[in-house]
Design a protein around this nucleic acid. Sequence first.
DNA 1: CGTTACGATTACATCGTTGAAACAGCGTCG
DNA 2: CGACGCTGTTTCAACGATGTAATCGTAACG
Lengths: 342, 342
Amino acid sequence: MGASLKDVAALAGVSVKTVSNVVNGYTYVSPPTREKVERALAQLDYRPNLSARNLRRGRTGVIALALPELDAPYFAELSRFVIEAAGDRGWTVLIEQTDGLPEREREVLEGVREQRIDGLIFSPIAVGREELAARTDTTALVLLGERVLDGPTHHVAIDNQRAAREVTEHLIACGHTRIAAIGRQDNPGANTAHLRLAGYRDALRAAGIDYDERLAPPTASYHRADGAQVMRHLLDLPEPPQAVFCFNDLLALGALRTVLSSGLRVPQDIALAGFDDIEDGRYSTPTLTTVSPDKAQIARAAVDMLDAQLTGVRHAARRRTNPREVTAEHRLLVRESTRCEP
Amino acid sequence: MGASLKDVAALAGVSVKTVSNVVNGYTYVSPPTREKVERALAQLDYRPNLSARNLRRGRTGVIALALPELDAPYFAELSRFVIEAAGDRGWTVLIEQTDGLPEREREVLEGVREQRIDGLIFSPIAVGREELAARTDTTALVLLGERVLDGPTHHVAIDNQRAAREVTEHLIACGHTRIAAIGRQDNPGANTAHLRLAGYRDALRAAGIDYDERLAPPTASYHRADGAQVMRHLLDLPEPPQAVFCFNDLLALGALRTVLSSGLRVPQDIALAGFDDIEDGRYSTPTLTTVSPDKAQIARAAVDMLDAQLTGVRHAARRRTNPREVTAEHRLLVRESTRCEP
DNA sequence: CGTTACGATTACATCGTTGAAACAGCGTCG
DNA sequence: CGACGCTGTTTCAACGATGTAATCGTAACG
């Protein structure tokens, strides 16, 4: 087992606390003592026992990131940024996969990992406003990607509705009028889906196009397979759409597959747009028009907000910082899949 | 803060240790006492403080998974399986991104997270046999995807060389003779690249085709961008290849992009095969021929081997279990990108 | 009836670390 | 010269849980 402070102290001929002081960079240690201790530290290859340190300090230095799926590229890319931002603060990230299951999400909220983490960054799918309000666990929390109005918690998201409107406006500007949407979800918790649908409808309305529910079929989840399947359905309509706005890139890539394998061309026969700007869409053929959320900014903001909560609690005993909402930037990236002369 | 054993004990009117006994399912607790304690536990919503428990027990219940990049789909998919397999044992997984940087990899090996984790599953890129042998940290270790012969550590991998040979044989069976490879790396640590190249050359040799180094250009890393760029280079050769074996799917998807945007068809003009079976390749157009490693098996085997090391240490004080090697299954999946009549 | 055995419970020490407070030594100041 | 303040160091008591050994009561035994 590794050496403890006691071992080092014995070797250096000083008290345990002095060694602790050296390790923690405490100011009042005489140079000769410091040097002696440091030699001993090096000789024994001392590493602090984090369990003990955390027990004493009441902090673990670990935050959790709870996501639906790690293998959805959007979340994988986001994770990397969160890990980096947390690393800058000396924090370690523990990843929790909920698979979007309500019960797993509730577990996470109620602190399965409590005592093991200082804070939680959570990207919910199923859990709604009520569950969040009812939460009893007091671990610091930041929500991602969900805009729970009046919600009791900090969160960071992009302006989903505006972004969705912009995509749809772009498709309209290309001259399309029969524009479908893939990704509608009627589950009341599916906030993101609602917002993107709302933005889509905003743009239609502004252009004087009637909303046709048959062009926005319900979509079980947001994987390639769903996109492929719903697209098949759209193509089989008596009047198929001229353009399709998919609520994420995976759906779009699935849809793209269906369109191309039906012998149709993108964008000439059908234009396709996605959402998330995952790397796949930059290398598909055609490349994918999409909304690019500033993932680095989202990650940074989330980590910052956790930090604020944690240090806030320290300074003003358990004062609940006011729920803050950060809106991250996004950009519409027009690529080949919707290229047109406007 | 959460309630501690002391609080529960006070409420139940018993000693701290009795509560501890109830919590840990110790046998000799009288039914009435047990019930009293359980009521108190429930009433205070007691959760054990893991720092304290770990300090006492010397185990953390956390393992680390160190990967080059979480946002490479192969690793993202693998992570999910590792997290699941670890979850079955009640372990939590902490993810460490090395970005393939030698210095980060060395840090991981030397136990940056020591004291915080019980074991490490590590997928190295840069670090080689010598560094592994020189490792001083004693945390249980399992290597992924690397076949370090005579290495001092447990590891699990598929038979890369055989798989690569099978892919190449398939391309040869389709009638191709000018077959390129994307993914060669001359860095001596790049074991996987060497093995796949070896398998490629085995197949060529068996078919009596000369190995032409110009058809296997060095490749800096394994991202789409690299595949796209190297493919561009191959297309610009005086005699471009008829088929290309890419050492992973990302390279293949990048290459596919280049080929298609050059106006060539896949597989008619150029056949393309990849490696890893990431989801993207199942939805690209054309779909991607690839080697599918049994990721679930790899994850399970890695976790099993960690478990064996951990319990081995417990039983026979620090007995080094013999380095074991597990070879996971793989399958060649022929899809559209190489379809031919053989 | 005294001893033993065992079930049930408790007191105590301990894991490694760090905050609070005490203490020792020494120069400074009134 | 005594009080004070500063640096440098140590002692002590926690943090929360658990292993060990001790304790207490009671039933079984010879």
